[in-house]
Design a protein around this nucleic acid. Structure first.
Length: 726
DNA sequence: CGAAAGGCTCTTTTT
DNA sequence: GAGCCTTTCG
């Protein structure tokens, strides 16, 4: 099929075309929600390659999540009909990690450096506090962590930080920051923010390296520009220094990451630093109904520090927004599930069309319980994130040490897990000695016999045994495939036994197996490369990245994570003062404005229908509170609203209590066959305990696989095996 | 050394 | 209500 370059422009509106075709010089695209932003970026890159003949090797596109990057690559390949590997495409963090692996040597960075996440960072900060003899009770590690992150987001090294600040607390932070950086260096590690900051420093100190990159990148694109921080801004300014073909895309109304030190002033700086900037507004919305767009506009218009913007759509008017008031969060969740079941059975929306959004992760709990109780499939994004789980981090720590023995934090994590008689005292002594000898902890392990005064024979033996174990694994790591290596680690360290001996060991072990499964896709690489690639990936993935859009299930997601996604039907729960807006934002008008933007982001995810829910009473931290309705609800004009008065009509109606059915509780085993009132016949494929109840996973003949709570699901045991059994 | 128990503080939001 | 830290005891 002949390729017609003009296909790239087909179907774009005039503003979108302008955004695609303006390829010379700085360009700022202000894109409202649903205005086809992703489409514009993708088409712009395609246009550069196909029409302008630019080598993909010379284009960089920065996205906010890995997911966005993957999607863009897919779309691009479809559009171009060819692969696009040469294109630099990824998050700031991933792109910088790549640059540092290649070029970091000149600033003394080992190419095998490990990336510490925020948990590792906090551990290291605690250690720093102790080592500079400050009391962690007086200066909370969290506060210090936040101050260091703030400094790094503004591009400040410890020295620069000291110059810029004067309070006593700043002096404390400065001391810890400086020491913390030393500890990182000693571990051949960088933290998240260092990925950006070190790249900036590298470019600043080594113009010859910067020059290579400047000359390479003829075109640079940055998505979600409203959520970039100052360090990221400096970085793109460096990179675009030569050609100045820099295109940034953003929407100030969707800026929701100022707590991560994203700085809206970047948009102002951009226009100031590049006075010849052309600005394109994308204001036609293709996503939502007129009603959805109108209530969104009313909500966001109440922000005072904002440039007004007029969004419009040719879509149909659609239905009114539903405001639902329930008594408790459990009822709120129950309403959501009931409504989704209704939509699904009426054929108005499938499960994957629906998303439930909330302000804080803790809110997902009541929802999950309700979804489980009614056997409606859901996918939870975030929460306790997979790669943050203790057992997962343990295994990764083993792999990290095998890859790079200098990684002290990981070594300290696993040195006594499973327990092998190396306690806190020994560890403290060993690491003090390592520091005095100026060697890594791993090296100290090897040389522990030379230490004066010596460890007890028993301790020495334990240290030696552990060291030999790790050495053996390290040798094997050079030959075994990644999954074989994981198996070997699990086996030879006794980790499996250790886990299964614990209370919730079964479940944790499942997670470990899931991790092991994830290592299988690295078969094509050499053992060393596979390990390196895997370790980098696991620290830089986010939860949205893993969201499976095709699965027939309802999405449960925080408002922050929902940015960039869209769903036909959106439920926002917890529309209450204290939740949205969150009470932490009460005393700062700017934070309230950000809460409002967050609400705006949520509403504008919807294509057809929005439900805003609030509960009269919400439990938190064991207690409960009565929250007034969110102030944002007052900004919605009444004629666009239907109130669902579960409040008046159903509140006092008897709700079927779960307990009475308990005594008829039957117990099911894997392999048994059941009959469900709605879903029909199925086979039990898994069961686990939840409190004094049982959760069973059943594969139904017609309805697919569902998780059900035994006490509530209308299930009957079937003695005779159904005929579909395979 | 390590298990167990008791006491404390938080919880926004995440690449 | 959990997760983290400290203390206590075997």
């Amino acid at each position: 099929m002949a390729f017609n370059p003009m296909d790239i422009l087909a179907g774009l509106n005039p503003a979108q075309r302008q955004a695609v075709q303006t390829i010379q010089g700085p360009l700022l695209i202000l894109a409202g929600p649903g205005s086809g932003k992703t489409r514009v970026i993708t088409h712009r890159v395609a246009y550069l390659i196909k029409v302008c003949g630019i080598n993909p090797h010379r284009i960089m596109a920065v996205t906010f999540t890995n997911k966005a990057a993957n999607e863009m690559r897919e779309r691009l390949e479809r559009l171009l009909g060819q692969t696009s590997e040469a294109l630099t495409l990824g998050t700031f963090h991933a792109i910088c990690a790549g640059i540092l692996r290649r070029e970091g040597k000149v600033i003394g960075l080992d190419p095998r450096f490990v990336i510490y996440d925020e948990e590792d960072q906090l551990t290291l900060i605690k250690q720093s506090l102790l080592e500079v003899r400050l009391d962690p009770k007086h200066y909370t590690p969290r506060a210090i962590q936040s101050a260091i992150k703030a400094a790094k987001s503004r591009g400040l090294s410890p020295k620069e930080y000291a110059h810029q600040t004067h309070s006593y607390f700043d002096e404390v932070v400065h001391r810890v920051y400086e020491h913390y950086q030393q500890l990182l260096t000693r571990s051949q590690a960088v933290d998240f923010d260092d990925l950006l900051l070190k790249t900036v420093q590298l470019f600043a100190e080594h113009p010859e390296v910067l020059n290579r990159y400047q000359s390479r990148y003829l075109h640079i694109l940055v998505d979600e520009f409203q959520d970039t921080n100052i360090t990221q801004y400096i970085l793109i300014k460096q990179l675009a220094g030569k050609y100045r073909n820099i295109c940034v895309v953003g929407d100030p109304d969707q800026s929701i990451y100022s707590w991560r030190f994203a700085d809206l002033r970047n948009i102002l700086s951009f226009e100031k630093d590049y006075p010849d900037t052309k600005v394109v507004f994308l204001e036609q919305n293709y996503r939502s109904t007129k009603t959805v767009l109108e209530i969104a506009s009313h909500i966001i218009s109440a922000n005072l520090k904002r440039k007004p913007k007029s969004l419009w759509t040719e879509n149909e008017t659609g239905v009114a927004v539903a405001i639902v008031e329930t008594y408790s969060e459990d009822e709120e969740a129950q309403f959501v599930v009931g409504e989704i079941e209704k939509l699904a059975s009426d054929g108005e929306a499938s499960l994957r069309d629906c998303a439930v959004m909330y302000r804080v992760n803790a809110q997902s709990r009541a929802l999950e319980e309700a979804f489980m109780r009614y056997g409606v499939p859901y996918k939870l994004v975030g929460g306790t994130r997979f790669y943050q789980r203790r057992e997962i981090k343990d295994i990764i720590a083993y792999l990290r040490v095998l890859h790079n023995p200098s990684d002290n934090i990981s070594l300290m994590r696993i040195i006594n897990i499973p327990g092998r008689g190396i306690g806190q005292r020994t560890l403290a002594e060993l690491s003090a000695w390592a520091r005095s000898q100026n060697i890594s902890l791993y090296h100290a392990l090897k040389a522990s016999e030379e230490k004066e005064p010596a460890f007890t024979p028993r301790t020495t033996y334990a240290l030696n045994t552990f060291f030999n174990l790790m050495e053996e694994l390290r040798n094997k790591s050079k030959e075994l495939s990644l999954s074989e290596l994981v198996d070997e680690v699990l086996e030879s360290t006794g980790y499996q036994k250790y886990l299964l001996g614990q209370e919730d060991g079964e479940e944790r072990w499942e997670n470990v197996l899931e991790l092991r499964a994830a290592t299988e896709e690295y078969g094509g690489l050499s053992p060393e490369e596979a390990l390196a690639t895997f370790l980098e990936k696991v620290t830089l993935v986010s939860d949205v990245d893993e969201l499976d859009e095709k699965a027939e299930a309802v999405t449960l997601i925080t408002l922050h994570q929902a940015k960039g996604l869209e769903f036909p039907v959106v439920f926002i729960v917890g529309m209450e003062e204290g939740v949205l807006p969150h009470r932490k934002s009460f005393d700062d008008p700017e934070e309230i404005e950000e809460e409002r933007r967050l609400c705006y982001v949520g509403v504008t995810r919807a294509q057809k229908q929005v439900y805003l829910l609030r509960a009269y009473r919400r439990s938190f931290l064991g207690g409960s509170s009565l929250n007034p309705p969110s102030r944002f609800l007052k900004d919605i004009p009444p004629h666009l609203v239907t109130i669902k008065g579960l409040w008046e009509e159903e509140l006092f109606a008897p709700v079927a209590a779960p307990s009475p059915r308990r005594f008829t509780l039957l117990s099911l085993k894997i392999g048994e066959h059941v009959h469900h009132k709605i879903f029909g016949e199925g086979e039990v494929i898994d069961c686990s305990r939840m409190g004094d109840d049982q959760v069973v996973t059943v594969t139904f003949k017609e309805a697919g696989t569902k998780k059900l709570l035994l006490s509530l699901a209308p299930l009957k045991k079937v003695e005779k095996a159904p005929e579909f059994r395979s």
